[in-house]
Design a binder for these strands. Structure first.
Lengths: 377, 377
DNA sequence: AAGAAAAGTTTGATCGATCAAATATTTTCG
DNA sequence: CGAAAATATTTGATCGATCAAACTTTTCTT
């Protein structure tokens, strides 16, 4: 009559004790088969569902993980975080975990939220995104013994092997290496790279992937290689400007790789010769425009994050330092090849580094464009 | 020494009873000022935080709202849902509410999740997105007396005034009406519209906004108006095809309005005369390409959803049918005007309705493109 | 100033589940 | 067969907070 049935109701109906009902749900192994079946039948019949809060109060665990919903999710590159969030939620659901969102305006504010959610037993652990060098969040979490896994490796010196810090990341080096190889195999020799200024954890990784592939091949001189590289902050208009500069200074270009889809989209604009352009992140924009792009395998990342969070270490290292279980995972991204220049674009022949006043800006000012996922700010 | 301090610890340290501590937190008004200050000081000193699960067990409310993370969030149009989710989380946080995510593969599956989360006292109510005609979810929730608010009005006959169903929606009519007016004021007379096939709840609304603005002005004949309208399923390549058809059949065109940014992006491609194109949703793509677009004011939508969910009705109607408080909100979208054709595009003169085999497809096949937010499936 | 009313505070019970320890039952084996 | 061991089940206590009702103190009324 009242609300929902409780363990006591089920126990009475099945002619057993509360604890046996509890055991059927949590340690089926220790209940005799016939008893278990009887209880299970009653559970189904009454439509019994355990009361999550009561269980959490007693067990002191919430089966919930917290993740900050990043404001930069609005940008083009933000969609990687979206897809990650979706994959994480889906896979968490499948193993009985819930995902709780929160927002924060700064790393300090985020730490406040950590405390609030942890003290209130709202969550068992956290998933962090957008890590950066000297990230105060990871230090705080480690100090306070709170479980967490980061999507993105720690960028500080030596932090990468900190056994207290569990992480999953995408191998940007491999992504660019494969993308470069793909262009070379398609006949390209002079493959240019538009990247971000160093130091940038993930940016430097990606650049190295391109650089290594180029030097392994060995058919471009060091001087030429230097000409084929250009750095710029992230953004569509920056990509356009960088491409224009490349065309002025680098001589023949057979293909262009970019550190982000934003740059790639921009590069596409100042690309009348329709040189193949490859971006990074495989965002919807890339898909719509028909750009090849390196896809961060968010499903694998999510799986890795959950495995570490629920695995042997329970998201943190409690003893067992001799364990062989790896404390991080490096996921290899996938290159998504698309028909080149699906959208034919043309550009006035007089494109200069500084966009002339008489021509409309190629990027409107009203939207802050897409800080990429993992660039330290 | 053990874990965190509890009410009992605080009570002891402050020399009061548990209940007084509880009152300080929940009904400060009934505690004498000096007592309250003393207790508050102790709370701060001990760093006491209430245990969320214990509170929920006792009060039978979770201060958490559930929302399904939609798979279609990956598409271009999906970013509206993203932005809504972010706004919702931010504003929920501000009023002490948590947001819990879940995924589902179908409306039926979603109902299963509703049951699970509700029975377990995980959530107090739900926010639904992507409503469609005959949506089984809302019926189920109403039947089971579970609180919910939808982003998107109910599309069934008479459903819109169903007093059991609280909703917030964006006024697509007003959006298109304003966009049309804006073009007319800029000197356009023959404004075309690329929309979705009827019946489509939100699609029909938007079309009506354009249609009404055009007939109010009255300088285009009914025949011409029919020529200026074209319907097609959503998608970039569909937009391109539609635009090409318009150019063949509609005579002069001064401006084009589209039911989505996907269509607008497509239309942009087959637009050598650089007729102004306006999209809908103000997605990152529109921002990057420099398309004008109708922005669904997600902040206002989120505020409205929360107000209804926590307001007089608590997300559902329990008596008080004579109340004057509105049971739904219609938010007026904002037109974001951008410099036209920020990205110069050109198209071969021989664009035909069927894309020739020798020319690369304008949209790659490997990505399911962007079902818009509110199109019934 | 006495009694009533209001305001402030405390006590015991309770939400629904699980833990720890006790008890009952079945199995094993000399 | 019967005692010890192994297995199965039950009982009482507990997690941390709030509710409901009892109790104490202060304020108001006449």
């Amino acid at each position: 009559m009242g609300g929902f049935p409780t363990v006591t109701d089920v126990a009475r109906a099945a002619g057993v004790s509360r604890q046996t009902v509890s055991n059927v749900m949590n340690s089926p192994g220790i209940v005799r088969a016939d008893t278990r079946q009887r209880v299970e039948a009653v559970i189904k019949e009454l439509g019994y569902r355990p009361h999550a809060s009561a269980r959490r109060l007693r067990t002191r665990r919430s089966s919930t993980i917290g993740i900050r919903l990043d404001p930069m999710i609005d940008g083009i590159s933000g969609s990687v975080l979206d897809r990650f969030l979706h994959a994480l939620t889906e896979q968490a659901d499948a193993q009985g975990l819930r995902v709780l969102l929160f927002t924060a305006t700064s790393p300090e504010d985020e730490i406040t939220q950590f405390r609030r959610l942890n003290d209130g037993a709202d969550v068992d652990g956290f998933v962090l995104t957008s890590t950066f060098a000297g990230d105060p969040r990871t230090h705080w979490l480690i100090e306070n013994g709170i479980s967490f896994v980061t999507f993105g490796r720690p960028w500080g010196v030596d932090d990468m092997n900190d056994p207290q810090h569990l992480w999953v990341d995408v191998d940007g080096w491999a992504g660019l290496h494969e993308a470069t190889r793909a262009q070379q195999e398609a006949g390209a020799r002079r493959v240019a790279y538009i990247g971000w200024p160093s130091p940038s954890g993930s940016g430097d990784e990606r650049r190295r992937g391109w650089y290594d592939a180029m030097t392994e091949r060995g058919d471009v001189s060091a001087d030429d290689l230097a000409e084929l590289e250009i750095v710029t902050p992230d953004g569509v208009s920056q990509g356009t400007a960088a491409m224009a500069r490349l065309r002025q200074n680098a001589g023949r270009i057979d293909a262009v790789l970019c550190a982000s889809d934003s740059l790639a989209l921009g590069a596409m604009i100042a690309n009348p010769e329709r040189v193949p352009v490859t971006g990074y992140d495989n965002t919807p924009v890339a898909a719509a425009i028909g750009l090849s792009s390196v896809d961060q395998a968010v499903d694998e990342v999510a799986a890795g994050v959950l495995a570490l969070l629920t695995g042997e270490f329970g998201g943190k290292v409690h003893g067992a330092p001799e364990s062989a279980e790896p404390r991080h995972r490096l996921v290899t991204p996938r290159l998504v090849v698309r028909e080149f220049a699906a959208i034919p674009m043309d550009v006035p022949q007089d494109v200069r580094l500084d966009v002339p006043q008489s021509v409309p800006q190629s990027v409107p000012q009203d939207v802050p464009l897409d800080v990429p996922l993992d660039v330290p700010q």
